[in-house]
Amino acid sequence: MSSSKAWADRQRRIGWTLAATAVVVGATGLTLQAVATGLPFDPRLVTGLGVLLLGLAIAALMRGGVATRASDTTRRLGIEEQDERNVAIRRFAGNRAFVVSAALTYALLMWVSFSANGQLPAISPDGLWYALAAAVVLPMVVYVGSIIAAQRSM
C-alpha cells in the first residue's frame, strides 16, 4: 500500500471514529438536556462537545475524500501534514494556545474561589457556562490566529 493511500485511509478511519463518538456524545447531551434535572453540570457542555467532535469528523472525512479522488493531492496533503515547517508552526501555535488556555482556566478558577469567599461577585450558572465556553473557544482562536501569523512570518 502506498504511503498516500495509507494516509487517506487513516484520515477516513479517524473521521468515522470521531463521527461515531460525536453521535454518541451529542445524543447523550441532548438526552440529558431533555430528561435529566438537578445535574451537577450543564448538559449543554456535553452537547457542545458532540458538535465539536462532529466538526472534526467532517474535516477528517473531507481530507480523506479529497485524497482519494486525486492521488497527487493525496501525496501533497501527506507532505503538507508532515512538512517540518508546518510541524514547527503547529507546535508554536499549540504552545501559545496552551498558555491562553491555562491562563483562562486559572483566572476562572480564581474567580470562582474568591466569589465563594464573597470577595468577588458570584457567577450565575449561565455566566459560568459562557465563561467555560470562552475558555474552550478562545484557545482555539489563538491557535488558528497563531498559525496564520506564523505562516506569514516563518
Binding site: 501533497r76 507532505i79 503538507e80 512538512d83 517540518e84 515547517r85 508546518n86 514547527a88 505562516q151 512570518s153 516563518m154
Partner: peptide, 26 residues
C-alpha cells in the same frame, strides 16, 4: 525541488527567503 526533498512548496519559498532555517536532516 519540494517534491525531490519531500517538503511543501511553501517551505522551499521560506527557505529561499531566509525566513526559515531547516532542520539538520532537511
Amino acid at each position: 525541488l519540494a517534491d525531490l526533498v519531500g517538503v511543501s512548496r511553501q517551505t522551499v519559498i521560506s527557505l529561499e527567503r531566509g525566513r526559515y532555517n531547516p532542520s539538520i536532516t532537511l
